[in-house]
Write a protein that binds this DNA or RNA. Structure first.
Lengths: 174, 174
DNA sequence: TGACGCTTGTAGCGAGTGCTACAAGACGTT
DNA sequence: AACGTCTTGTAGCACTCGCTACAAGCGTCA
């Protein structure tokens, strides 16, 4: 048993039950150990969560290129719509749940959450840049516009106002 | 002491310390009572939180017309930028912190959070509709596009990527 | 005065929290 | 065989959580 062995089942548990109320004993049970051992390997619960978030960010980076289509989108709007649609599928719900926990953690000035969120955003931004149409006049600016719309629409969807966010996506130019 | 007397200090406490880890005893202390009394008045912690969120939503509706400018914006982009700038001021940080807690709660299918979030979004959407330029061709669609951009930009700001969201705001047409 | 209901205080329950002290086993080195 | 280090289990600490049982104070009305 090492950190590397423990992390996958821990992340799986967090994706299923949320990050906010994940405590040592249930986490340990999910990974087949004891709270005692988690603290032995990670030192502190905060360190555990930090390692967990780091692993999660890497996992997200890997997932992007497998779950998402390889070819470029036909327009900025189509690119945003694709990401929005895919992240709306039920198998993505666990990840989004954790994501909003992370955002809430950032809002409470938690450094580990902040780092993980930043890394995830950078990865997604780079992915969007690479999937904009070939002829996009300004891929950097385009990707940022697309990202903003995606995240706004995702938020509006999770609070029960999907129509608002989808209108926002439709209003993207290019 | 009644619910109405209790709610303002309770909401103040929540805005300062976050909604996620607000437990009965600290809340009671902030309101000058005991946990025993909070449960006496509200019955359950869940009911307390529900009442709190309802009060918060109403408070937000009231705040919109006082803290925000009365006149209409000169463009959709300007309207979004105004809301983004105002909500970026330090005195708005407590409200945003609670907001992300609410979104995280929605993502965990909490009904009370869901209701409050929906109400707040509706209020804000109506406000945006009323503050778009007179000549906007489609205020409903415009307000939705503005809302999506605002919320996306706010999220990107709280996770430490303000430049991305601001580029998204700048890309708003009209 | 006495009975009744509304409000409040004291004290505690059982469960869960992060974390730790202590000891025993496993295992390689000398 | 003896030692020392790494890994693991047992048991428990002090604390917080939401919630409740019980009773005392309170004003009101008969």
């Amino acid at each position: 048993m090492s950190r590397e062995t423990l992390l996958p089942p821990l992340v799986a548990y967090v994706m299923q039950h949320g990050l906010a109320d994940a405590s040592l004993r249930p986490l340990a049970k999910a990974a087949g150990t004891s709270d005692r051992m988690l603290l032995y390997h990670f030192g502190t619960k905060d360190a555990l969560v930090a390692a967990l978030l780091e692993y999660l960010a890497d996992m997200f980076a890997d997932a992007l290129d497998t779950a998402f289509p390889q070819e470029r989108a036909r327009s900025r709007r189509a690119c945003a719509q694709t990401v929005y649609d895919i992240t709306g599928r039920p198998e993505f719900a666990p990840f989004l749940r954790v994501w909003w926990d992370i955002v809430a953690g950032c809002s409470n000035s938690n450094a580990a959450y902040f780092d993980a969120a930043g890394r995830i955003m950078d990865v997604l931004l780079a992915w969007v840049v690479d999937h904009l149409p070939e002829g996009d006049p300004d891929p950097q600016a385009g990707a940022r516009a697309v990202m903003t719309a995606i995240k706004g629409a995702q938020m509006l969807r999770t609070v029960g106002r999907p129509d608002v966010g989808e209108a926002g996506l439709a209003a993207l130019e290019g």
